[in-house]
Design a protein around this nucleic acid. Sequence first.
DNA 1: TCCTTTTGTGACGCTTTGTCATTTATTGTC
DNA 2: GACAATAAATGACAAAGCGTCACAAAAGGA
Lengths: 199, 199
Amino acid sequence: MPTKTFFNLKKDKRQRVEKALMHEFGKGSFEQASITNIVNEAKIPRGSFYQYFVDKKDAVTYLIQKFILLEHQKIHEALVENNGDIFETALRIYDYRTKETILNFDIGLAKNILEELRRNNVNIFENRDILEKEESLKKYINKDNMKINSEEDLYYFIRILTAIVRSVTMEVFSERISKEEGRKMLEKELEIIKKGIEK
Amino acid sequence: MPTKTFFNLKKDKRQRVEKALMHEFGKGSFEQASITNIVNEAKIPRGSFYQYFVDKKDAVTYLIQKFILLEHQKIHEALVENNGDIFETALRIYDYRTKETILNFDIGLAKNILEELRRNNVNIFENRDILEKEESLKKYINKDNMKINSEEDLYYFIRILTAIVRSVTMEVFSERISKEEGRKMLEKELEIIKKGIEK
DNA sequence: TCCTTTTGTGACGCTTTGTCATTTATTGTC
DNA sequence: GACAATAAATGACAAAGCGTCACAAAAGGA
């Protein structure tokens, strides 16, 4: 997390830094991002960057946390609007993630963030950082039409959905498939999960 | 892919280079790997590295291709031994991936390779590079006890399995869960896929 | 006003990458 | 074996990036 110095910054300066971070981290991969570019764009001296953030990773973490919180709200909305239907919600998550702008995050940045979350297998329904501040989303899930008999079942089921939505989202991001193709694939995959495989 | 110069190298030298590559790329992430370390370990001058490989990525690609081919063979074996049972095979893939040594690749290196394959959503049943040289594994899958009515269904089903096995494998690699916990989780997840969710 | 604490600043040391001009080895031909 | 042509080896070098540090400026408090 950024230092307290960063949060004490005047609004104008902090926003300049934030904007530069979002821009640079969205351009290529996180590894490729250059601190030199960030300080140039934000018009702050190099030393200041290290006064605000421990290192590059620290700055990334800050953006990721922001993203997770916004996404949590978004999923909450989707769940409520769809009366707790988790399959519809999964599609809604896919839809907004593959939009041009995700929660006001540039698409390139969102892609990198989601990749990072995937790498660390962060599950928005279980994430600890969120659960400290926000309530769990699980209770909004309507289990009436599902063969879910325990908290454990639900846990594993959410893991499966998370893996699948992520997988197809990343494929769209990497431009191997279009947004529309991806959605159709996701629909088919959800259908298989619904019906099961065993004869 | 490496240059022809690399393949023309005397066995001893080529093996020295390969060993150094595998060691360095297994130490940390691919991005962290240092070419300086590789050339030092392999006892070749810096310039030679760039005579053999276009760049760092090229060297990585070489290792990944080697890995994919070996894994393809391994899955083939597993499928045949289990009479085409894809669920058992999924568990077998999990098992050998979470072993101490994977196909003679150091565990750190295997982790990085699998992460890369995941990022690019490489599916060993569909991979183009393999299909040029080897036959598809799909035909070995026994569909008798499964609600799979078309090639398309099978395709999506394999996508789901791939996503799930990868997800849990990466969690074991990142040491959030143990090998044994991971296996139990995978078993539960496979069970859900078998039975379906819909009441 | 004077002292203390916080923030700003950019030159610098260090490391790494990929290039390139030059040297050395290998191969083929007569 | 001699010579030319092709292939491979070599390491010094330019360019670029990271994080540090000593010092300067600003802000806060008494």
